[in-house]
Design a protein around this nucleic acid. Structure first.
Lengths: 249, 249
DNA sequence: CGGCATCTTGAGTTGGGTCAATGGTCGTGG
DNA sequence: CCACGACCATTGACCCAACTCAAGATGCCG
């Protein structure tokens, strides 16, 4: 909580757009409903958006932590470095989701965030969030909720990784995306997987050959239509059964 | 955030001990160093400790969320329920660690916390934390750090689960415990695994037979001495090599 | 001592990893 | 516009780590 953080440090990628008032967070479909005055406050605090081209880094593991990022459009993956330097995908973020919480613990980011397609993010200076006045304690509650949500999500992921077989992992993954798209007003049946098979494999703990094989199998079973990154769910129930129906180790 | 939370709801297990002032959190070896005045404030807010017998629940999935719990002594496991009702261990907490963050997101606990041995926990009313005044914003920072730490830890766990083989998982698990004991002033070589093989297996995503076999193998290789729950590390380096040395899938 | 829970060990099976080759798609430049 | 190459995805054959089932061994408590 050192004072020099209050003066915003130079951001390592050029600003793209100065925000007009009351328009940045407002349009953002946050996963938790916010009171109007909280949104106003957020718009005050969040004064810029930034575009990232597909493949560019939003932050690197080791970077000093200053900002959280809310995804306005696009798709972002989070990679965690393990002991031996290899990277592993530990999360995907889409419109309305916030990333960067990994940096608070040590004031340095522990993960690397990469845009999977051209994306636009809101840049949220975290120290401003922390220093909002007492009248804005709603804001703290909101961020506690967001972090808790991430923790719960990670626990779900751990369960999936340690308890389920390949089939169930892929099914759970597809259903999860489907649900998140649905919540944002998109079709829950027609999905575009913005990430490559390699990312899916890394995230789900399986090799890309296996990812591919499972997708083919699902297609043969009439559960999905698969054309490259485009996936159409034909049998939602069938997928749910795969997840729930004890195909656990 | 609703007002009735300010009045503390009945806690579902009887209080054991009313705290004397300035003694509850003080003695707690928190994972993040705290300024003295922050500790004072915490001692004000945290006004009770509670004992839990081995095997008893601290909270259940579905319980309304009111408190965080700091482990003063003992050992706690966290279990997450998956779709089909089976439970899976998603964390272990020892002295100085805080659990309960899973409840903030929806105001209901998403996991079940169980004492693995007789344990004493500090009960921290979360709404008091949220409503501390501006002068205590350090406290918010502290809790943001704790939550971020949990997120980072979960990411590490996800990596371990999806990227490592059985040998490496067990090695990483033992080294992790060793480190945490060491940080708390205990030997990093002589460990007592408070949980059963089944819990380890659930946590690490392997069957108890495999856990057992790996431990036996490590014993045969001279890495460990194993007597039931007591484990002595003979070759720390060897274990570290297993984790780092790409025995990944 | 018996009964119960936990842990270990063995034998056989399988899901998913490895290696290797083929097939698609896209972008660039002639 | 087509041809080339780079990159990504799919498919097949083979193999091994970890699962399953089953039997013992060990320890703990009354």
């Amino acid at each position: 909580m050192n004072a020099e953080k209050t003066a915003l440090p130079e951001i390592d990628i050029p600003y793209v757009k100065q925000a007009c008032s009351n328009c940045i967070m407002r349009e953002l479909c946050l996963p938790v409903a916010l009171a109007s005055n909280v949104l106003d406050k957020l718009d005050e605090l969040v004064y810029l958006r930034k575009r990232f081209k597909a493949g560019t880094h939003i932050y690197h593991a080791g970077n000093n932590f200053h900002y959280l990022y809310a995804v306005r459009s696009g798709f972002v993956k989070l990679e965690t470095l393990n002991e031996d330097g290899r990277e592993q995908v530990t999360g995907f973020y889409m419109m309305g989701e916030i990333l960067g919480f990994d940096g608070i613990a040590t004031d340095q980011h522990m993960c690397t965030a990469v845009a999977l397609e051209d994306s636009e993010l809101c840049v949220i200076p975290f120290d401003r969030i922390e220093h909002v006045g007492q009248e804005m304690e709603h804001l703290h509650h909101h961020f506690y909720m967001l972090m808790s949500r991430e923790i719960v999500r990670d626990h779900t992921m751990m369960m999936l990784l340690s308890g389920m077989q390949g089939d169930a992992r892929i099914a759970a993954f597809i259903l999860n995306l489907s649900q998140r798209f649905h919540e944002r007003g998109y079709s829950s049946y027609d999905l575009v997987l913005r990430m490559k098979r390699e990312d899916i494999g890394s995230y789900l703990g399986m090799k890309i050959e296996t990812v591919s094989r499972v997708l083919t199998k699902f297609r043969d079973q009439g559960l999905l239509e698969v054309h490259q990154k485009h996936v159409r769910i034909l049998d939602m129930n069938g997928l749910q059964k795969l997840v729930g129906h004890h195909p656990c180790k």
